[in-house]
């Protein structure tokens, strides 16, 4: 993964795959660090599997591939900066991921967050997203309620959502 935005896109899709109905995503950026929190109400992870989520050779998709690299990659990049990734979960209730990355020479660039958010909110019609993005003291919120019922496979709708996040990100800077 070249950017933090790529990590967020990758990790947040775990929530979609866990059949979450609602995913809350916080992306807070300050002068010195990034804080990411992803909270879902998906199927959760039992204790046994939770201890293996950072093992690159552990996956629940054995039929397709033998590796699960998403979380290990994020952990590696976060720890390189002196940060961390924590995952806590209750089976049948959901999962919470928290990650911190410090801005220093080994920290990946933030990358294309607008594209990440637009891709996530159009990834599945079954998931309701709540996104909170802050850059220092400026923030914006997004809730899937505003696009509820829209055809998320329509190119013009997806394009509009990309444009929306583009303008939101632009306003922060």
């Amino acid at each position: 993964m070249k950017t933090i935005a790529d990590h967020v896109l990758d990790i947040a899709q775990n929530s979609v795959n866990a059949n979450a109905k609602c995913v809350e995503l916080f992306f807070l950026e300050n002068d010195d660090d990034f804080f990411i929190k992803i909270k879902d109400n998906g199927c959760g992870i039992d204790k046994d599997k939770l201890s293996k989520v950072f093992d690159p050779f552990f996956t629940t998709h054995e039929k397709i591939r033998r590796v699960g690299l998403g979380l290990p990659f994020l952990k590696q990049n976060a720890e390189l900066t002196g940060g961390y990734v924590h995952v806590s979960s209750q089976p049948q209730e959901g999962t919470i991921l928290e990650a911190k990355l410090f801005k220093m020479v080994d920290c990946p660039p933030v990358g294309d967050l607008k594209g990440t958010f637009a891709t996530l909110v159009t990834s599945s019609p079954n998931v309701s997203w709540k996104i909170c993005r802050c850059l220092k003291n400026k923030c914006y919120d997004f809730s899937s309620e505003v696009i509820k019922g829209a055809d998320l496979t329509s190119p013009s709708v997806i394009k509009a959502i990309f444009e929306y996040f583009k303008s939101m990100e632009y306003a922060l800077r």
Partner: peptide
Amino acid sequence: LQRIKEES
């Protein structure tokens, strides 16, 4: 964005 949704 809401207008696009309504059209959709």
